[in-house]
Write a protein that binds this DNA or RNA. Structure first.
Lengths: 142, 142
DNA sequence: CTACTATCTGACGTGTACGTTAGATAGAGG
DNA sequence: CCTCTATCTAACGTACACGTCAGATAGTAG
């Protein structure tokens, strides 16, 4: 069911390149895909692809460096840990712990998004004012 | 009144560096500050600084490359032309022309801002959903 | 005029984020 | 077992956006 993908297909699905995935692994941004003996092909799950898509999206929209992205990746990894442990039946304390840490990371991202939105709102307001002034000129002036 | 600034002070006011200003001039992003004989100091007006601040802000918020920024700079230059010509008394046809072109450039920027805002809205919605799920777990679960 | 600081013009260096190439190997299909 | 393609590692190359340094010059304060 959970198809296993190799790096080429993973890259296509995540709308990125093979090199990028390997590079992210190199710098420790992405975990080394499974335990491989050197030379063996990397394998990815669809969840891995989803995680990567999310990370790339956040990077793009917030303009984060790969260094800054590490917190985001951490959050994504935690999500997966949570899913697995829940199905494997984790203790209530463990669940609590995971949820708390998850909240911290989600809060961090929400914070970044909110800030950027506020700045974009300001920018948009100024642009709209400019546009209105120009339209006024076209209407009743020049 | 309209203080004349040299590159160091201009950089401070625009919250950037001297090198950046010179680099932008090198690649033709910013106009060569006035007509200088080679070796003479560059001079900037407060308007120049405002223009630069705007450009840097748009770059940061929209994640544009310097190449893509050229449209934005063009828009800012046009604003200045407009101001000057208005005070110098431009013909109605000229005013009309300037306003139309200005609208195009403002429209372009508004479009970019709107797109980014939409994407950020989506991102925020997903993050908020995640947060809510985690909070639910803390409330009535773990 | 002198002293001092900021700016000037090259030119080379740097960090980030990958692209590209070479030669060997893995693994799926027949 | 053989073939063929995708992937492997290692290494060098590249585009962008500046940083940094050297040596000369401009402009301001006294």
């Amino acid at each position: 069911m959970t198809a296993v993908l190799r790096i080429g297909e993973a890259a296509r699905r995540a709308e990125t390149t093979v090199r990028t995935i390997r590079y992210y692994e190199e710098i420790g941004l992405l975990p080394a895909a499974g335990t491989r003996e050197s030379g063996a092909h990397r394998v990815y799950s669809e969840q891995d692809v989803e995680r990567l898509r999310w990370v790339l999206r956040v990077k793009e929209l917030l303009g984060l460096s790969l260094e800054e992205l590490k917190e985001v990746v951490e959050g994504e990894e935690l999500r997966e840990v949570r899913r697995e442990e829940y199905h494997g039946g984790a203790s209530p304390e463990r669940r609590h712990e995971l949820a708390v840490e998850g909240l911290r990371l989600v809060g961090y991202q929400l914070d970044l998004v909110a800030r950027r939105q506020a700045e974009l709102d300001d920018l948009r307001a100024e642009l709209t004012a400019r546009r209105d002034r120009l339209e006024a000129i076209l209407r009743d002036g020049a």
